[in-house]
């Protein structure tokens, strides 16, 4: 790309660029800016100081973004200018598209896109664009967060979005970002954060996660999802016991017969909730010594909680007995 300067451009003759101020000592991580970058920044500072929003400012910001796409100030000022000028936002999106692919991990670009689409008031074309981005990087945090914003902003909590998410999970059942998106669609939207969930939705979600677990039992994503659904719906953890026993059964099967450490983890909580402390301890021991030993201290901590809980119950039972005795 040809270098671009402003000092001899008649369009800019009315502007005196603002050079960078110096404070004596040599700054840290100082960059030997090119003359081009330095000059363009000088003109931008002058425009910002004068609060100028104009077509030439759009050109200037485009130029600087080309030199440094991680320059949040330029992006933010460009967004302000677009808004002040009532610019054609469709054209802005068309300009953004090729840039986004090159800079998937750039916070600014996604935020800018969000600002523009919000103003435009229409999500047209965005889902397809996002899908193309995820083809490059299926777990990109900015892209998924942007999609969640989009769904919420345009109330897209519908069957179509859910179907698309299922496709993403089908592509890779271990894609946790896709699982999180499913959660967001099912529990984060119209249902509201605190509201009660319909029973058939709960059943559908439990079955969906269980089917996924059967494909790859050591995949933690659907196990976390399953626990989440139980917690969110207020069902007792024991509702999952039958399912978890498919993958491990510390009570009835040999210790070698474990197909998922996450099943043991879940069973430990199920047994604990049911007061079956011995079985809970056994599940945690299997995790600590054999099936997930890197987390040994954590499993031991969970055992410690069981014992503390047991002591509490004993004292509780003792005092209840005392109350009964006293009442009699």
């Amino acid at each position: 790309m040809a270098r671009k300067y402003y000092h001899d451009d008649p369009k800019w003759s009315d502007v005196a660029p603002l050079p960078q101020e110096d404070y004596g000592h040599h700054p840290l991580a100082a960059i030997a800016y090119t003359e081009e970058y330095s000059e363009a920044m000088g003109y931008l500072r002058a425009c910002m100081a004068a609060n100028e929003h104009s077509e030439r400012v759009l050109e200037l910001t485009e130029h600087i973004i080309g030199l440094n796409p991680a320059h949040y100030t330029v992006w933010l000022y460009r967004a302000q200018t677009l808004s002040a000028l009532n610019s054609d936002l469709r054209a802005e999106i068309a300009w953004l598209n090729p840039t986004a692919l090159q800079h998937l991990k750039n916070y600014q670009i996604w935020h800018h896109r969000q600002t523009i689409i919000d103003k435009l008031g229409s999500p047209d074309g965005e889902p397809a664009f996002i899908t193309a981005m995820l083809d490059q990087d299926s777990k990109n945090y900015h892209v998924w967060s942007y999609r969640q914003w989009l769904v919420k902003r345009f109330d897209m909590f519908d069957g179509r979005e859910l179907k698309w998410t299922e496709g993403m999970i089908d592509d890779d059942v271990r894609n946790n970002s896709a699982w999180n998106h499913r959660w967001f669609l099912v529990f984060g939207g119209t249902v509201g954060e605190g509201e009660k969930v319909e029973r058939d939705v709960v059943v559908r979600e439990l079955e969906y996660a269980q089917d996924a677990i059967r494909k790859a039992p050591q995949n933690q994503s659907p196990w976390n999802y399953l626990r989440g659904v139980i917690r969110r719906s207020g069902l007792p953890l024991s509702a999952l016991q039958h399912f978890a026993l498919e993958f491990a059964d510390p009570e009835n099967r040999p210790d070698d017969d474990v197909f998922s450490s996450h099943a043991l983890d879940l069973l430990a909580d199920i047994y604990a909730a049911a007061g079956k402390t011995e079985l809970a301890v056994k599940a945690l021991d299997l995790l600590a010594t054999r099936y997930d030993p890197i987390r040994k201290t954590y499993w031991e901590y969970r055992k410690g909680l069981l014992e503390a809980e047991g002591r509490k119950e004993e004292t509780g039972a003792a005092s209840a007995a005392a109350v009964e005795t006293a009442a009699a």
């Binding site: 991580a29 100082a30 960059i31 030997a32 800016y33 090119t34 970058y37 030199l67 440094n68 991680a70």
Partner: peptide, 11 residues
């Protein structure tokens, strides 16, 4: 100090 091509870390 950084070379001119490191402008993308300016911010």
């Amino acid at each position: 100090d950084y070379e001119p091509h490191m402008a993308p870390l300016d911010a």
